[in-house]
């Protein structure tokens, strides 16, 4: 077999799947963003129109919600990174070789408990007079339901997705590098800050792909602990059904897609995408 034929054999199925099926589906969706829906019948009117995008640009609410969603996604990502970094470092470099796999399992186990159940557990934790309020000194003392609660709960849900790549990155990092730094007189924190963190940036960015995109598209956690806030996912979800307005939902969906594509292209050079 010539290399060409072998390459074709390897790539045929995946390319058909990802390019034709997946990209095709996405492309169809975005074409429909230029369509409209007949107010009477709910039928899709397949005629080119920029109306949906005009609405999105004209109404302040869409800009507000977009900024809020990006803010939430960024906050969740930062919170996850801040928590994951020391935990992963402990797991990879401090814990004994025997404890290591058990710690990894301990961090991963929550992934098996349903997302919804965990979110609802947080609703109970955050309730007025609930455990968190009690801990902080009485009803109303905790964050309650709202934007801070959304950030907290999303960070909780996606934390393992950040710990995992960071841990893997740290484990690959040879101990000799850290020892060299120590030999040259750098104290523990200095080595951590000046050597470890820069070296595992690609791993952190990889984890951030997960935490950022999962937060950007979420609409269920917001419903459970978000109080009266809404994120871009809620708007898309509301419009998919509302008067069956798929075109408007598709137009709204271009916002998170654009943000993610820009993000991916920007981080590709760092090699982060291979760390997922």
């Amino acid at each position: 077999m010539s290399p060409r034929v072998r390459l074709a054999a390897l790539l045929a199925a995946p390319v058909v799947w990802l390019v034709v099926a997946y990209l095709g589906a996405l492309a169809t969706l975005f074409v429909s963003a230029f369509w409209t829906v007949n107010g009477f019948t709910g039928a899709t009117v397949k005629r080119f129109s920029l109306g949906n995008f005009e609405t999105i640009l004209r109404e302040d609410v869409y800009r507000t919600v977009t900024l809020r969603s990006v803010g939430v996604a960024a906050a969740v990502t930062v919170l996850c990174a801040v928590l994951a970094l020391p935990m992963a470092y402990f797991m990879a470099k401090v814990a004994s070789a025997r404890a290591r796999p058990w710690l990894v399992i301990a961090v991963l186990t929550p992934l098996w408990a349903s997302y919804l159940v965990k979110a609802y557990a947080w609703r109970v934790l955050l309730a007025n007079g609930g455990p968190l309020d009690t801990l902080l000194g009485g009803p109303g003392r905790g964050p309650g339901y709202g934007l801070p609660a959304v950030v907290l709960v999303l960070a909780y849900l996606w934390l393992p997705y950040m710990i995992l790549p960071v841990y893997a990155g740290l484990e690959r990092l040879p101990d000799s590098v850290l020892e060299a730094s120590a030999d040259l007189g750098a104290r523990g924190w200095r080595t951590f800050r000046a050597i470890t963190v820069p070296l595992i940036v690609p791993s952190i960015v990889a984890g951030a792909v997960f935490t950022f995109s999962l937060s950007l598209g979420d609409y269920i956690t917001v419903q459970i602990v978000g109080g009266k806030t809404q994120l871009i996912g809620n708007l898309v979800y509301a419009n998919v059904g509302a008067a069956n307005n798929l075109p408007f939902a598709a137009a709204l969906a271009t916002i998170p897609v654009l943000i993610m594509v820009i993000y991916l292209v920007a981080v590709r050079r760092s090699g982060a995408l291979e760390e997922l």
Binding site: V31, F34, T41, K46
Partner: peptide
């Protein structure tokens, strides 16, 4: 990939002008 997306957008828009608009007053 961008080129591919643009291409499919163009083709799909080109053939997507069939109208399903309802003109009647009552339900179908």
């Amino acid at each position: 990939m961008t080129a591919l997306l643009t291409l499919s957008v163009l083709t799909l828009t080109a053939c997507g002008d069939s109208s399903t608009e309802e003109t009647g007053d009552g339900p179908p």
